Amino acid sequence: MTETRQEKPIPPGQWRSDGLPPVMAIDLPPQEPLPDGVATYFDKCEEKLGLVPNVLVAHAFDADRLNAFAAFYNGLMLAPSGLTKAEREMIAVAVSAINRCHYCLTAHGAALRQLTGDPALAETIAQNWRAADLPARQQAMLTFAEKLSVSPAAMEEADRQALRDAGFSERDIFDIAAVTGFYAMSNRLASATEMAPNPEYHAMARE
């Protein structure tokens, strides 16, 4: 009787060839070679940030999926809005803290430190935003984002009115909800795949 030889499976996440830790715990290598548009996008990230965020690398197994994710992120976090970029990052960090998302807390904690120039404030928001010395506007914003994250079915007109009373427009309310919802999704995806933050984030904007 001849035994059938079985190949030993490659452990998930072991496809990195650059000596860096695996991006995530499921085995979805980027397309090879990267499509021109994706390669150009990654080059721009490297130029502007000094790295390619692992969340983008994780999506690079499918160029269409990556492009859709990047477009949605850029529209929410970087496009003109009544919310400042720092306020949008505050939402990202506060929501990620609620969901205990290691990747997003690390990556967006670094972004918030850079945007505010205040590492202590950013760290406090990551640990417990209610302990941070925030103006009433941002307290109202994060109160709304927290409730939407924890008990979305309990949202009511009083929650929206509290934002209006704090000076937010109708479009601002939509943007607060959209950013909150985006990180509800992103946190769960990162946690489900054990997505690893780029090591460089840990040291960014600490002084």
Score class of each variant (00 low, 15 high):
residue 8 K to L: 14
residue 9 P to W: 05
residue 13 G to A: 05
residue 20 L to I: 00
residue 21 P to I: 02
residue 28 L to H: 10
residue 31 Q to Y: 08
residue 36 D to G: 04
residue 37 G to D: 12
residue 42 F to R: 09
residue 43 D to C: 01
residue 43 D to R: 01
residue 45 C to R: 00
residue 45 C to D: 02
residue 49 L to D: 01
residue 55 V to Q: 07
residue 56 L to R: 15
residue 56 L to P: 02
residue 58 A to W: 02
residue 65 R to G: 03
residue 67 N to K: 09
residue 68 A to T: 03
residue 71 A to L: 00
residue 78 L to D: 08
residue 80 P to N: 14
residue 88 R to N: 15
residue 90 M to H: 13
residue 100 R to Q: 15
residue 105 L to H: 05
residue 105 L to K: 08
residue 106 T to V: 07
residue 107 A to I: 05
residue 112 L to H: 13
residue 113 R to Q: 10
residue 118 D to G: 12
residue 119 P to D: 09
residue 122 A to F: 09
residue 124 T to P: 12
residue 124 T to M: 05
residue 125 I to V: 15
residue 128 N to F: 04
residue 130 R to T: 08
residue 140 A to S: 12
residue 146 E to K: 06
residue 146 E to M: 07
residue 146 E to I: 04
residue 157 E to C: 00
residue 157 E to N: 05
residue 159 D to K: 08
residue 160 R to A: 13
residue 160 R to M: 12
residue 162 A to T: 10
residue 168 F to A: 14
residue 170 E to K: 03
residue 171 R to V: 14
residue 174 F to M: 12
residue 174 F to R: 11
residue 176 I to R: 07
residue 177 A to V: 13
residue 179 V to D: 08
residue 181 G to W: 12
residue 182 F to W: 15
residue 192 A to L: 14
residue 192 A to G: 15
residue 195 M to G: 06
residue 196 A to G: 00
residue 197 P to W: 03
residue 198 N to W: 01
residue 206 R to T: 11
